[in-house]
Every structure is written in C-alpha cells, then in structure tokens.
Design a protein around this nucleic acid. Sequence first.
RNA 1: GUCCCCAUCGUCUAGUCAGGCCCAGGACACCGGCCUUUCAAGCCGGCGACGCGGGUUCAAAUCCCGCUGGGGACGCCA
Length: 506
Amino acid sequence: MTVRTRVAPSPTGDPHVGTAYVALFNYCFAKKHGGQFILRIEDTDQVRSTASSERMILEALRWVGLSWDEGPDVGGPHGPYRQSERAELYQEAAATLLDSGHAFRCFMTADELTEARAAHQASGATQSMISPYTDLPRAESDARAAAGDAFVIRLRTPREGTCVIQDRLRGAIEVPWDQVDQQVLLKSDGFPTYHLANVVDDHHMAITHVLRGEEWISSAPKHQLLYQAFGWQMPELVHLPLLRNPDKSKLSKRKNPTSILYYQRMGFLPEALLNYLGRMAWSMPDEREQFDLSEMLEHFDLDRISLGGPVFDVTKLEWLNGVWLRDGLTEDEYAQRVMDWAFNREFLGQIIPLVRQRANKLTDLAPLASFFLQGLIDLKPEDLQGFKGIESDDETRRILTWSLWHLEALAEWEADGIQAVLREMAEIMGVKLRVLLAPFFVALSGQRSSTPLFQTMGILGKDIVRARIRHAVDTLAPISKKEQGRWQKAYDQAVAAHVAALAAQG
RNA sequence: GUCCCCAUCGUCUAGUCAGGCCCAGGACACCGGCCUUUCAAGCCGGCGACGCGGGUUCAAAUCCCGCUGGGGACGCCA
C-alpha cells in the first residue's frame, strides 16, 4: 500500500505557520515512505472562505519550499481538491448514513439550540447534549423535510461504553461514548462540516495516514464512528503537539505573529523558517540545529517526535535565520535574496509613489522610506508622549489597542478599508481623526510624520502593523490582564452603542 | 465544570519504548572572557532542569500509581 498523506488548510485567513508545520511533517512522512503528499482545500465554511486566502496559503507553502503531488493547482487523479466542488459526494454520504440509521435529521433552530445549550450547561450535566429529534421516526422526519422545514443531519452516537482510538504516538486513547456529541455532519445550507467532509475525502483520496494537530484528538471518536458506519478502513492517526505562544497556550495571532507572510516580510529565509518548524517537536538523530528539507527527509522518523507542546520562540528562529544568512548562502545568493525580499520593482513600486513628492534627491529616500524595510521600530516612551489632544499614556495605549481590535474585523487589508475603520474608531472614541492617528505615525514609522498613513499601513501589511502597534503599546506599558478585560468590555459596549446610534439614525 | 492529552534548564531538545554508560548532554537566551579600530560574527567559560509523593528494583529521568501543573476539546469553525 502506498503511503498517502495530506494537509487540509481552511482558506479563512492568512497562511498560518501551524499549517506549514503540519504540512512539513505530512510531507516528510509520505516521502520517507516513497508515497504521495496531497494538498486539499477545506472550504466548506461558505461564510469565511475566500479565494484570496486560498491563493496566499498555496503561495506561502510553496515559498517555504513544500510541494505536493496532488492539489487544486496541480490536479491529480482524485480531484477535485477543493471541498466546495465535491458537494454531491457529501450529500450522498449523508443520505447513506440517514438510510443506515447512523445519522438523523435535527430540526432545531439556531435559537432553540442556543437555549438548549445554555440549559444543558446550567443543569450541570456531565454528558454531551442529545437532540430531541434523535429518535424521531424516519417517516415523520421525511415528511418534515419534504414540507421544507430546515434541518441539519447529525451523527447518531452510542450513549454507553467506551470508544478506543489508536494514536500512532500515544497508543490507545479511551473516551467514554457519553462524552461524544451528536456532531452536525451536514449543515442546513447543505454543506458538510469538517468531520464528514474530511472522512469522505480521506477515503476517496486513499489517504493512509493523517498527521494533524492535537486539537483533533477529541473528535477522533466521531471520525472513527463514521469510518465504521461507511465500512471503510480508517487511516492511521498521528496527532502532532500544538505550537504554543510563550505563555503555553495554543499559538494565536493575538499573542504572537502567526502568519507566514509576516515572517517573510520580516526578512526570514524560507529555509530557516521551515528548518525551525522542523525543530518543533522533532530533532535530528545527531541533534544538529541547521538542516534543509532533504536532510530532514533523509532522517525523518515519527518516533523522534516529542509530545510536549513546543513554544514558538521567535528569538531562536532569529538566531537560526542568522545561521542560514551567514553560512547557508553565497554572496551572490544573498544579494538575490535581498532583491527578492524588498529591493524589487513590485515592492519599491508601492513605496515610490508615496515618497517621490517628498524627496529632492535619491538620498532623501532612505530616511523617508527606511521604516518600510525595518522590523520592529525602536521606541522610547517619550516618543509616544505629548500628542496634542491626548491627555495620558493610557489614552494613547487605548487608542492604539482599540483601533487594532477594530482593524481585526477588516476582511481585506487595503488603504480604503483601513481608512474607513479608523474613521469609525475616531467617532466611537469621540476624538478627531488627526488626534487618533498621531500615535500611529510614531508607532509605525518612528516619526511624528511620514508617508500617508492608510497607504503606508496597506503596504506594511496587517502583521507588521499589528506587531509594531503592540510594540508601541508595550513601550508605554504592557497591557495587564485586568486592563485587557476592562478594555475589551468597554470596547464591546462602545461599538454596540455606535451600531445602535447608527441604526437609530436610520 | 466534564472528557482527553502532556510533563527534562526561562525556551527548543537528547536521553524514556529495550532501567545501570546521566550527581543528566547539546542549542537559543542571559552573564563573563578571548579575538578585534568599533559593533557583530567566531572561540572559550559560567548560570541553569529530570514538577511533587508513593511504589517496583541491587539500581529509576527512564517502569507503575496518585497528586499537582500546563494544554486541548466541548460550534450548523476548521
């Protein structure tokens, strides 16, 4: 049997380093065994999936040096490789489960569900919740469906006994069945959830081994149940430890830059980033720190995976990147990398229009544009003090923090959208736009005035902006847990009040 | 709260499955020194961990149990 693995990112945001980490291990495992590595796009969330996210994820994975044998861009014998294009397959699968009694229709509305969940929680129940439609006779269920009542299809789960799943790294894992919920398999929009789609696709794509994040362990019983219901052979499960923030929680963009694009923009080499990800939970037999993909592949062994969740330590990544920069490249290659990174037509082309009116000589460009080429900006508290219209450090910190939160909601990171969001923020906070913006100039460029802010932010990119703003806030004073909670509440209320006011206006 | 996973320096880890070679090795960071016109880089040195308690054993970082701690899941997200 040929080993076949896959990585299945969801195109709902920026390319995540965790995706590259999981992809790397899947790639190495498949290739080590002479097998194939597949890339599949899990875009069953109609609301959040975007084409641009998918494009960025593919580009980012290629950038770090990964490639796949089958995927939406390269095709393959088991396509299509985008779940939104495989809808029929899941519908059929769901119908099969309905007929075999392994699944049932649930007619609860979203509101009913929310209420039931609250009641369930309040009751102090220690078992998973059960739908009132679990045992609705099939004829009645069919009748309601035919009448046009909205429904989802849920998995019928055993209520007694213990489920045993096998994890390649951990051995047997036992989960009481009464803890396993009646997972929605098909949503009311007719699209499958991850759970159904992933089982159906892994089977049809002949996936033999699933290397995925540890966060999936708790849904493994449901997946196993599905394989059994379909009468399919289940792939071997390998749950990888999760990448962590410095505080040990699951790596998240609120606490740490997680986008591959950020590390690219910050001047990390793809080889170094991939090398570093290969050092997460894994080590070379001789413990060497620097290695490339082919070397990792040569020595890859699942048994060398350690199970403690590794903290993604940017400082060590920086050191490793330095090693690559110093020892891994010839001078010509180095020069080429610098050009690829920022000294190219495309990147300079974005910056030139912003600086040319402000410069009399080419030498004027360096001081005007240097911050486009920097990482974090070195700031002293005084740099962020004495703004007209701002009374205190806390006000500055709040302006920056709230604005950052507000910007998170932006679907597409470009100047016009950024402008709209910040204008709205000024209104919400009841300050003039120019007052609100003043700290941004310093936080982002280190100077009181610079190139036009919104366009500048667009070019810098979401992650650099986020990192610099956070750094500026920290320069004045790090946000304490208490403050975080208080501000979040106040922010939510202010936004709600603003929305209400707008609605009242008509 | 319930269930599940995990546990070696601050961080990444070797060693754990096949107990003795480990009063625990390497790397990052930090501190000190050497080199050097400066700063880096490099080299040398220092600091620093088997979470706790019970067992099993001649012998435990390694095996077993409990506790504690950390993490994850509990969505018509993935």
